[in-house]
Computed example of a mutant assay.
Amino acid sequence: MTGSRVLSFGHHQPLKVVTNDDLALMVDTSDEWIQSRVGIKTRHLATESESVQDMAAKAAENALARAGLTGAEIDQVVVATCTAVDRSPNMAARVAAAVGAGSPAAIDVNTACSGFPHALALADQCIRGGSATKALVIGVEKLSDFADWNDRSTCVLVGDGAGAAVVVASDEPEISPVTWGSVPTMGHTVRIEAPSLTFAQEGQAVYRWATTALPQLAVQACNKAGITPEDLGAVVLHQANLRIIEPLARKIGAVNAVVARDVVESGNTSAASIPLALSKLIERGEVKSGSPVLLFGFGGGLSYAGLVIRCP
């Protein structure tokens, strides 16, 4: 085998939906204020009894069922998250146990909002290199555990959920080489740090970076896949802000692409946002099987990663 491909996607979100009007009862905000700035209308929040592991396992089981595989057939589990509470065992090991995987390599990736494309690139490279044959790649977050519910600039953003993909070896590569990197001098702009351990960000700095640097990086990712933005069937960015997502597709010339806008109903789910959004697009039949899809994440670190896959 000379490449890898995504066989299926799956996702899970908590049942509890919180509207902007609900948040207006907690902090000084309004539906108009939130929508005008970030485009969010609702978000799903986990209950106290719903853990990161629970959401990740449910998304993984959904992806496995769609792939027609069992957990026992998986030999690598890669979980992208920045909201796992425990240091050890890692989340990948816990998810592996939950889905019945035998003895997989179990790896956590913490690059926050760009976690899923980082994790997907890692699985792709391991399969290409012969270190794995069937991988489970998951993005999952319970950001509500780390939200400052008195800070209207950040608490209105967060959502909880998980998205997963099954990646297998293939004769032809259907996952492009990754375009990834970081801006270490901007690492402080998105953070969950001691002693408060609450989510904080410098939104304007991230917005300026994303709207100026991201278009060129997105085109680079397309070039590595041997396509132009006009060839894209879908664009799935990290679902941080609708005011970043919509202009980017226009700037790079992705004129034929479906643009994921899951941020409107799910909020910012960090590492979960890309697989969650794409899984929903596929479930609704909005992206054709085989069409090229740009995945690009950015945020905490400040880290970024982007690649093009063929839609399963």
Rank of each mutant, 00 (worst) to 15 (best):
A240L: 12
A249E: 00
N241H: 14
E246V: 07
L232T: 10
E230S: 15
I245K: 03
P247M: 07
I244M: 15
G253T: 11
V258N: 01
Q239F: 07
A254Y: 02
I252G: 02
A254T: 04
V258L: 05
H238A: 15
L248D: 01
N241L: 13
I252Y: 05
V255E: 13
A240R: 05
A249G: 08
V258A: 14
A260T: 04
I244R: 03
D231T: 06
P229L: 13
I245T: 12
T228I: 00
V259H: 02
I252E: 05
A249D: 00
L237Y: 04
N241W: 10
L232I: 13
H238K: 12
V255D: 12
Q239L: 09
N256D: 13
K251W: 00
A257K: 08
A234I: 07
G233M: 09
L237C: 11
D231F: 02
G253C: 10
L248H: 04
A260Y: 04
G253N: 10
A249V: 01
A260L: 11
V258K: 15
E246G: 01
T228C: 03
V259G: 00
N241Q: 14
E246T: 12
L237A: 11
N241S: 13
H238Q: 15
P247V: 08
L237F: 14
H238E: 12
R243Q: 07
K251S: 04
D231Y: 00
A240E: 07
I252Q: 03
P229A: 12
A234E: 09
V258R: 15
A257D: 11
R243A: 00
Q239C: 10
A240H: 04
A240K: 03
V255I: 10
P247C: 09
E246M: 05
L237P: 00
N241D: 14
N241K: 12
A257F: 08
V236Y: 06
L237I: 09
H238N: 13
A234W: 07
V236R: 08
A249C: 06
R243C: 05
A234R: 02
P247L: 10
G253D: 11
E246K: 09
A260F: 03
E230H: 14
G253I: 09
P229R: 11
V235P: 00
P229H: 11
A254M: 07
V235H: 00
I252H: 04
V236S: 06
V235W: 00
D231E: 14
R250N: 13
L248K: 01
T228M: 08
T228A: 14
L242V: 09
I244D: 01
Q239A: 09
A240Y: 05
N241I: 10
D231A: 11
A257E: 12
A234H: 07
L237E: 05
N256T: 06
A240V: 15
R243V: 00
P229S: 12
T228E: 14
V258E: 15
I244S: 05
D231C: 02
L248T: 09
D231I: 03
A234Q: 07
L237T: 02
V236A: 08
L232K: 13
L248Y: 00
L248Q: 04
G253W: 03
A234C: 12
D231S: 11
I245N: 06
K251T: 11
K251D: 07
I244L: 15
G253K: 08
E230T: 15
K251I: 03
R250W: 01
I244C: 06
R250M: 10
